[in-house]
Simulated assay, not measured.
Amino acid sequence: MQFSHEINYIFLDYDGTIIENAEEEFLRNYFSLLSKKLDSTFDETLRLVMSSVQDAVANQDRMNLFEKFGEAISARSGKSKEYWIDKFLEFYNTDFDQLRQITQPNKEFVNVVNKTNKSLIFASNPLFPRIATYKRIQFAGLNPEMFYYVAHMENSTYAKPNPLFFKEIIEKLKLHPAECVMIGDSDFDKACEKVGIKFIHISEEEKWREIF
């Protein structure tokens, strides 16, 4: 596999890449725990949170996704943004840890990631706040400190598959797209190609081993 520049920065997806769990499996367990925390039904919680996430992602204002989500869920529920921030942070500090039990790291991939001297960029869809994102990294057997940059709700304006998600990161870090590669498992991740970042599917083991 030939690249025009040396690859120095590796963008990594999470669900289906760093971990073997499909995103749907994680979300099913996530909403089961969250609905109990909120004393609400699974369906009500799923509907409120996912519609608020969709509102936040569709909002093209320059606010970060955490602020957009807070405004969206407040508008949809009639409860204050502060109420929801407190509820979610309490959840992420406590019950969220139970999700470690169902997390299945992609062991071979994680071993390679742990040994690399390349600069790593955590580029999972930034739909969790920093506290939850850091915990998810730890659930997989990685250390948040090993990443050159970790995308999360508080430092992201856009979400995948919007290519502006990738553009924002390379502009913020002053990277050249040709020295970057994205490893993921979906067309959401492949949107990186629209800003000049090469994409490797997690199933293409020979290619990503060569990059590392």
Rank of each mutant, 00 (worst) to 15 (best):
V49K: 08
E210R: 12
F42H: 15
I18H: 05
I200E: 01
I19F: 06
K194Q: 13
I211C: 03
Q60R: 13
K37F: 10
L38H: 09
D189L: 07
L48Q: 07
L173N: 07
F212C: 09
N29E: 14
I10T: 09
D86I: 08
N111Y: 12
V53P: 00
S52V: 10
I183A: 01
E206Y: 11
V181F: 04
H5Y: 07
D185E: 09
I7E: 00
F128P: 00
F31Y: 14
I169D: 05
L65F: 01
K36C: 05
V49S: 03
G184A: 08
K174C: 11
M50H: 02
P129Q: 11
F212Y: 11
I211M: 05
D97A: 14
E210F: 15
F212E: 01
I10A: 08
I197R: 06
F109W: 03
P105L: 04
Y30H: 08
S40I: 00
N155V: 08
F166L: 03
S52E: 06
R28N: 15
T133F: 06
K135T: 03
F199S: 08
A132C: 08
M63W: 09
E44M: 08
E90A: 14
F42R: 11
I10C: 09
L48C: 04
N93W: 12
F3G: 00
R130P: 00
D61Q: 10
I183G: 00
H152F: 14
S119W: 03
R76T: 05
A75G: 12
S35Q: 10
T157L: 09
E204W: 00
L89S: 15
N8M: 02
E154T: 05
P126T: 08
D55F: 06
I183M: 04
A140K: 04
L12Q: 04
R62I: 09
F109D: 00
Q2V: 12
S80L: 10
V112P: 00
F122L: 12
D61V: 02
E20N: 12
F147Y: 08
L33T: 06
I200C: 02
N93R: 15
F165S: 00
T133D: 01
K68D: 11
K115F: 04
E210S: 15
P163T: 05
K36A: 13
E154S: 04
Y14C: 04
N125L: 07
Q104E: 13
L89T: 14
S40V: 00
K135V: 09
Q2S: 15
V195F: 03
K68L: 11
F166R: 03
T103V: 07
A123L: 10
S186T: 15
P144D: 10
I121H: 01
W208C: 01
E210Y: 14
F69S: 05
I137Y: 03
K118F: 07
D13I: 11
I170D: 04
G141L: 04
N21D: 07
I7F: 06
F66R: 15
